[in-house]
Simulated assay, not measured.
Amino acid sequence: LVSLGGYPLAYCIHEGNKYEGHTMLPTINEFVSKYGLEDFVVVADSGLMNNANIAELEAHGYKYIIGAKIKNESQEVKNWILEQPKRDCQMVEYDKGGGRRL
């Protein structure tokens, strides 16, 4: 786990053959409990995320950002992304429903 500035805050060591998607949430939960965190954002790549991890993040009320591949999105989402004008410093948002958005 790292700070906003990229400084290490905590780490855990696990067996080399253990899927890291199963280690992320216990590590986060322990860190949150230990330091009494209330406002933070989990940022992870898609390799750490699966539907079970996302559901647990949402069940705990954790905010999160997941890196993902456009090719894994529906054709509707792909078309929407490609139709967006490319402007510096401008964000757009797509509502996927259920509180999830791009």
Score class of each variant (00 low, 15 high):
F31V: 02
Y64S: 01
D45Q: 13
G99Y: 10
V43P: 08
Q75M: 09
G5R: 03
V43K: 13
Q90G: 00
R101G: 04
Q75E: 15
A68Y: 13
R87G: 00
G61M: 01
C12E: 15
S3D: 15
E93V: 10
E30T: 06
N17P: 08
A10V: 04
R101W: 09
V77P: 02
G47E: 15
I70E: 13
T27N: 01
K69S: 10
I28W: 05
E30D: 09
E58Q: 13
N29A: 07
P26I: 03
V77H: 02
I81A: 11
N72K: 14
Y62E: 06
F31T: 03
R100S: 09
T23R: 07
M24N: 00
L9T: 04
Y35A: 11
Q90H: 15
V32R: 04
N72D: 10
S46I: 07
P26V: 05
G98D: 13
D88K: 10
A55Y: 00
I28A: 04
G36A: 08
M24E: 04
C89D: 15
K34R: 15
P85Y: 00
K18P: 05
T27V: 02
E83W: 02
R100M: 06
K34E: 08
G67P: 05
S3F: 06
K96S: 12
W80H: 05
E56V: 00
G61D: 10
P26S: 07
D39M: 01
E15W: 02
Y35M: 02
G36Q: 04
K78T: 10
Q84E: 15
Y94V: 06
K71M: 11
Y64P: 00
G99W: 03
A59Q: 11
V2C: 14
C89A: 10
K78W: 08
K78H: 06
G16H: 06
L4D: 07
V42K: 04
I66C: 15
D45V: 13
P8D: 06
Q84S: 03
D39H: 13
L9R: 12
H22P: 06
S74K: 08
C12N: 14
M91Q: 14
K69M: 11
I66Y: 08
A55M: 05
W80N: 04
N17Q: 04
M49P: 02
L48C: 05
Q75C: 07
N17I: 07
R87K: 15
K63G: 15
N29S: 14
T27F: 14
K86D: 09
M91I: 08
L37D: 05
D95G: 09
V42Y: 01
Y11H: 13
Y7V: 06
M49A: 12
S33W: 10
D45K: 12
A68I: 14
T23Y: 02
L57E: 00
E38R: 09
Y19R: 01
H60Q: 15
E76I: 09
V43D: 08
E73T: 07
E58Y: 00
L82S: 04
G5N: 12
W80Q: 03
L4M: 09
K18M: 06
V32G: 03
G61S: 03
G47D: 15
A68T: 10
V43N: 12
R87L: 15
R87A: 09
D39I: 07
T23K: 00
A68C: 15
A44M: 11
I13F: 01
K71T: 13
S3M: 04
I13T: 14
K63A: 13
G5T: 10
K71W: 09
E58A: 14
K71Q: 11
N79M: 01
L37T: 02
